[in-house]
Nucleic acid binder design. Structure first.
Lengths: 219, 219
DNA sequence: TATTTTCTTAAGTTTTCTTTAAGTTTCGCT
DNA sequence: AGCGAAACTTAAAGAAAACTTAAGAAAATA
């Protein structure tokens, strides 16, 4: 999931970036309104953490810009302004959540998970489909109650599928979710991962729709 | 907007109900898990405020029930349990927001506004015609609620027809929609696809207008 | 750094879809 | 009713997509 962190305090930013990457986000960072708007224009960003006090203007400019777009991008405001009035104002401007500094990283991450599962249209971090359960907050997968360990890419692929049960996703869509928009895959990597996943799950778990894509569950 | 308040403390509940009504919500109130589930079963509720400590069980039961449903109902947890762990747990179970008591009503209302504006912008792209439904975002086709799998070209053809219900389209028009303006069809491909589709749907679903073209629905 | 695991690539194989084409039926017109 | 045009049906060849396998590259781990 591609996240944009807008935060001008470099010390705070560096720490956050590292832990966000560990949480599985692909993070871009801006310290100014101007640069933030540039990042957003690429159209890749799916989620934004926004500080309000920026050197070249107020973060609310970024918020307004995002909410004027057609694409739905959740925005979590993370700022030192912690009064009730600030919160109400921030939320009413269109933010999806508001956290005042100092904040606990665990709470921020939980709230980000809420936002990202909304992007993925799933309802909770516990994804179940038949005998397979995936807990995206703990990064674990169980089949019939037995826990199993998946390599990173296989886990990401399975999660991408289970976050969209009943929704067919093309290989292209899945590639976009597994790979940073820096490097492209020049081959059938997705097919191979699917193949490996299938060996670990019931044979009819991942279905193929020839020419369209792959699905899991609900059909 | 229909809101369900689940809260067993009558004093808190009465105060909240009054201000929620002033905010424009139509409020139902439950003091128990059992009654809350009954209220939800009506299917009217669009938004829930949930206290966790209830006399006949934990509020998380209600949360689980809501999140197991297909319908998307935002849940804001409002509880005395205010530790970071409680928050993380509640959010990861599927809650959309979490507010610890004591709370400021203005903040609660702002967060409810966030939740309700999200309800209103949720709409999926469904094409319906009689018993046949296409969800183009999920690439799924259902007939009488049963999902069926169509090959790519058949799906494209069906979609082209259903996007123009009641409008007759010539074979030529349909060809233009299924094929890039580079490749040519040298034969009766459309007729064959129509034939295949007809075997999968009620016999009168796709109508032929001899010499003119094909239609679906409305006539 | 050595070792192991995971990821990507590519080629060969299999499966399924799509198109073609020929034969058959239906329709509308005179 | 009989004719011609249009649409339907069928089956098989051809094309496209997906599966499988294995080997080398990259990454993680010790």
């Amino acid at each position: 999931m591609h996240l944009l962190l807008v935060e001008d305090d470099h010390l705070v930013a560096q720490g956050l970036i590292r832990s966000l990457r560990q949480e599985g986000y692909s993070v871009e960072h801006s310290g100014t309104v101007k640069h933030a708007l540039e990042c957003l224009s690429s159209g890749e960003i799916e989620l934004v953490i926004l500080d309000l006090g920026l050197p070249d203007g107020d973060g609310s400019l970024v918020l307004k810009h995002i909410k004027a777009q057609k694409k739905v991008i959740p925005v979590v405001i993370l700022t030192a302004r912690g009064s009730i009035d600030d919160k109400v104002q921030g939320l009413d401007m269109g933010a999806d959540d508001y956290l005042a500094k100092p904040f606990d990283p665990a709470e921020l991450f939980a709230r980000l998970r809420v936002a990202s599962r909304r992007v993925n249209q799933t309802q909770s971090s516990l994804l179940q489909c038949g005998e397979v359960v995936i807990d995206s907050s703990a990064h674990t997968v169980t089949l019939n109650g037995e826990s199993l360990t998946l390599p990173r890419k296989e886990y990401m692929l399975l999660k991408a599928l289970m976050e969209n049960q009943g929704r067919v996703q093309s290989k292209q869509q899945l590639e976009n979710k597994l790979y940073q928009w820096g490097e492209e895959v020049g081959s059938n990597a997705i097919e191979v991962h699917i193949h490996h996943l299938r060996k670990k799950f019931p044979s009819d778990f991942i279905k193929t729709l020839r020419g369209i894509g792959y699905v899991v569950g609900k059909r």
